[in-house]
């Protein structure tokens, strides 16, 4: 297998060539926290969190600029009622098959097989591409922590677009 794409370097070069200011990537300075998984997957309740700008028809859609809000998507929602809009990635594939960035059907299948215990009542989505890491840390992340606790999630799976 060839080397993974070095996105930080490549995006830095692209932005420089376009005269944009350098992007400041989020850096985790300290070692990450750790919670041991003590139950088998088949007994765990999992919460899906995705950043692809997904909303349910009837919900207010996301902004393309520094939107730190989130949407609760019932995990029994038909895939045909879900939408994807985003400024940063090509949504054509997502609109053909949302599972490629919001793997709700995939997870439902693994629950049906008994591989995974269950899903929380809702999955949570947001826009991503929020430039302010401070606002992610002080607004969006604490809100999702609260939802994960309310929904009694054992595990959280985070899927970026």
């Amino acid at each position: 297998m060839s080397e993974p794409v070095r996105y930080i370097e490549r995006i830095g070069q692209l932005y420089q060539s376009l005269g944009y200011p350098a992007y400041r990537w989020a850096v985790g300075e300290s070692p990450p926290p750790w919670t041991a998984v003590t139950k088998p997957l088949s007994e765990c309740r999992l919460m899906l969190i995705a950043s692809g700008g997904i909303y349910l028809a009837g919900q207010v859609a996301f902004h393309y600029k520094d939107d730190t809000s989130y949407r609760a998507i019932p995990t029994d929602a038909p895939m045909a009622t879900l939408r994807a809009t985003h400024f940063a990635y090509d949504t054509a594939n997502a609109r053909r098959d949302l599972n490629c960035i919001f793997p709700l059907e995939t997870l439902r299948r693994l629950v049906a097989e008994g591989f995974l215990g269950e899903l929380t009542a809702h999955a949570y989505t947001f826009m991503g591409g929020i430039y302010s890491t401070r606002r992610v840390s002080t607004e969006l992340a604490p809100a999702l922590v609260a939802r994960a606790r309310e929904e009694k999630a054992d595990l959280a799976l985070l899927v970026p677009a």
Binding site: P4, A26, A156, L158, P160
Partner: peptide, 30 residues
């Protein structure tokens, strides 16, 4: 994503980030 995962993990809920950008993920270190 990694910043959110860190906060969720810190309250006792295990997290896993899927990613297709290895260097960006390693920088934020979820």
């Amino acid at each position: 994503m990694g910043l959110i995962a860190r906060q969720i993990e810190a309250v006792g809920i295990a997290t896993l980030c899927m990613t297709s950008a290895l260097d960006i993920t390693r920088a934020v270190n979820p």
